[in-house]
Design a protein around this nucleic acid. Structure first.
Lengths: 203, 203
DNA sequence: AAAAAATTAGTACATTTGGTCTAAATTTAA
DNA sequence: TTAAATTTAGACCAAATGTACTAATTTTTT
């Protein structure tokens, strides 16, 4: 009977998105779902425990969403697909990215975990770009760390486009995601070869 | 006799950088500087009042720093100079960028002000790029909104490189700033013409 | 020097929060 | 059906916070 546990996570998720992590207390969560404070504490001792569980949910959701795509022979398109599916998930859990620094500060374990995952992601990007160069879809680098810089800029964009949109836009979900997906693509555009661009237009 | 007022701002500034805005209370500020709580309240009713004053300080410091540079004939270099001088100031007030979303959420007036300033900045960037194209330093856009997208990506980078560095780096100030200044430049690199690149190397 | 204004310390109060504990109620297992 | 385990409600406490207020002290003005 883990219904309550799940409902706590659902409620916390919703309140975090609405008010920000810092402004939501365990008591507020309990009050919102009409259970006693003691009951909530029985399931989750601290807010950090809830955040860790929600982070697990994010990872699982992202993994699930990613499975829906078949393997792409064009590494750039494959990379975009992975990124976009992540975009949708993260938007649903946008409190996590908006309050990223706050969460990392309060929860060192999550901080380390998050950094580790980003390392994996960077390696994946590096491999995709290498393959794209081999296939003649992206040009050779003009200086040694050109693509390392691109990857880091892509990481920063991926980590903070939601924060940015929270400040500058208040549009609906789909518009916001599409807009930033387009921005994401535009980061790669100048590095594509003629063939690389052609391959995208045929899609 | 505004010594106390100034000292409150100094202390708040330092504590915000160290612990984050959400975790610093008015009482903590007063305790840190050994004045009574009532005294602090006399000068600043709320934390938002302090934040607004600190934001003023940021703007003034950025303006001052910017004056130190003479006008550049190369619009790209001019743009970089402005950006880098802003980088240094913002790093000193990094709490503001790290807790940007939190601050904007709690303080709608500051939120509007911040958005307004970003609009001005975007226009400045657009003008610099136009001039760079006219001078043959940057290439023509390959599609209609290519440079609008670049500018938005630059904005996101400028707003959040400090947040990113807080998560991924714990190095010293100068190294961090130099690293991200280099990343900033690399955003423009693929759009420069041969002449544009030459003009930079001669610097 | 005296009066007025500004600054400062200190007290008191209501709220919120995290944390602990107990007893009742409910569910599960024997 | 009864016993054991789990879940839930509710009370209690201590710490922190914002807010309001008063009185003392210091500074400035006249």
């Amino acid at each position: 009977m883990k219904k309550t546990k799940e409902k706590i996570l659902d409620t916390a998720h919703q309140l975090f998105n609405e008010y920000g992590v810092a402004d939501v207390s365990l008591r507020k969560i309990a009050a919102t779902m009409n259970i006693s404070h003691g009951n909530l504490i029985y399931h989750f001792k601290t807010k950090n425990d809830i955040l860790e569980q929600l982070h697990e949910r994010i990872l699982i959701a992202a993994l699930e969403e990613n499975k829906r795509f078949k393997i792409e022979e064009n590494p750039i398109i494959g990379l975009w697909q992975t990124a976009f599916s992540g975009f949708r998930i993260l938007y649903d859990y946008r409190f996590f990215m908006i309050d990223l620094n706050y969460i990392m500060r309060e929860n060192p374990a999550l901080h380390e975990r998050f950094k580790g995952l980003e390392t994996v992601r960077a390696e994946m990007y590096q491999e995709a770009i290498d393959r794209a160069i081999q296939k003649g879809l992206m040009r050779q680098p003009e200086y040694s760390n050109e693509y390392i810089q691109l990857i880091e800029r892509v990481r920063i964009f991926s980590d903070f486009w939601i924060s940015s949109s929270a400040i500058y836009y208040s549009e609906n979900k789909n518009k916001t995601i599409e807009h930033h997906a387009s921005l994401f693509q535009s980061m790669f555009f100048p590095y594509l070869t003629i063939e690389g661009k052609k391959a995208l237009n045929n899609k």
